[in-house]
């Protein structure tokens, strides 16, 4: 039971971004995808979520090919939080989080009791319950990101893909968001897949790390196996030393 990516190719127009990539993403874990800018991290996530057509290959979610699933059926099992979602003008926190229930709503019916419970759970998990009546546009960057994550939690999918959930946040807020994702993964036993820029943070928070370069796989596995000087050289072209983090024991990257 996992997410199987079987020799997929994805192109924007004629430009091939992902080239025959094969991967297995483990279920119930936190997976981080790392790689230099433009290596196809976001494209991979969007391809998995069915937002981009596959030129070749297939993606299989627990034995069901994603391409054959209806959008609403897929949306009950897998959610994607894009890098720059748009908040409608004037929307308030609770209303936005409730939008996450869309695939579970019955046509022409307001949210049911189960939906309201899911929204409550998600808002408490993400620590945004106290600001439920505030306008999303009035919140700080860190608060706003937690609201979007609450919306994705409320969708209650087994799989949650997060595209750069920490961009534009300062370090304390990056840690806050990553702790939140980690906690949700273990408490609600959800599989999280996120793209991250910070390699040391990926090493600290992810069970499984995937390193890409030019739309191709460089390495995958537990952080201590993937985050090594050789992989960093091949993936990022970065000369770096890797030492065990004195506090957490996870790999810590020291660029030269």
């Amino acid at each position: 039971m996992s997410l199987n990516i079987d020799s997929i190719s994805i192109a924007y127009g004629t430009h091939l971004v992902i080239k025959g990539l094969s991967l297995t993403i483990p279920k119930g874990a936190v997976t981080a995808i790392i790689g230099p800018n433009g290596c196809g991290k976001s494209t991979l996530l969007r391809g998995i979520a069915g937002l981009l057509p596959l030129q070749r290959g297939r993606i299989v979610l627990d034995e069901n090919p994603v391409a054959q699933m209806r959008p609403s059926a897929l949306a009950r099992r897998l959610a994607l939080l894009p890098q720059a979602p748009l908040a409608p003008e004037g929307i308030r926190v609770q209303e936005l989080v409730t939008r996450g229930r869309t695939p579970w709503l019955r046509p022409f019916r307001p949210p049911a009791a189960a939906d309201r419970d899911a929204v409550e759970r998600a808002m408490h998990a993400a620590g945004v319950a106290e600001m439920r009546h505030r306008r999303v546009s009035d919140l700080s960057g860190g608060q706003r990101q937690r609201v979007w994550i609450a919306m994705a939690f409320a969708q209650e999918t087994e799989w949650l893909l997060l595209d750069e959930p920490t961009t534009w946040l300062d370090l304390p807020h990056q840690l806050e968001v990553l702790h939140l994702i980690r906690r949700q993964s273990s408490e609600a036993s959800r599989s999280m897949v996120m793209t991250l820029h910070d390699i040391s943070l990926a090493a600290r928070f992810a069970d499984h790390v995937i390193a890409l370069r030019d739309g191709d796989l460089v390495a995958q596995g537990p952080a201590h196996q993937v985050i090594t000087p050789e992989v960093l050289k091949r993936s990022f072209g970065l000369k770096a030393q890797v030492i065990p983090d004195p506090l957490h024991g996870t790999p810590l990257v020291l660029p030269r």
Binding site: A49, L86, R99, P103
Partner: peptide, 15 residues
Amino acid sequence: DRLELGDDLAQSLGV
């Protein structure tokens, strides 16, 4: 309502 969240998110919500 969902399309106002952007195409990617709307699609991810099953629209």
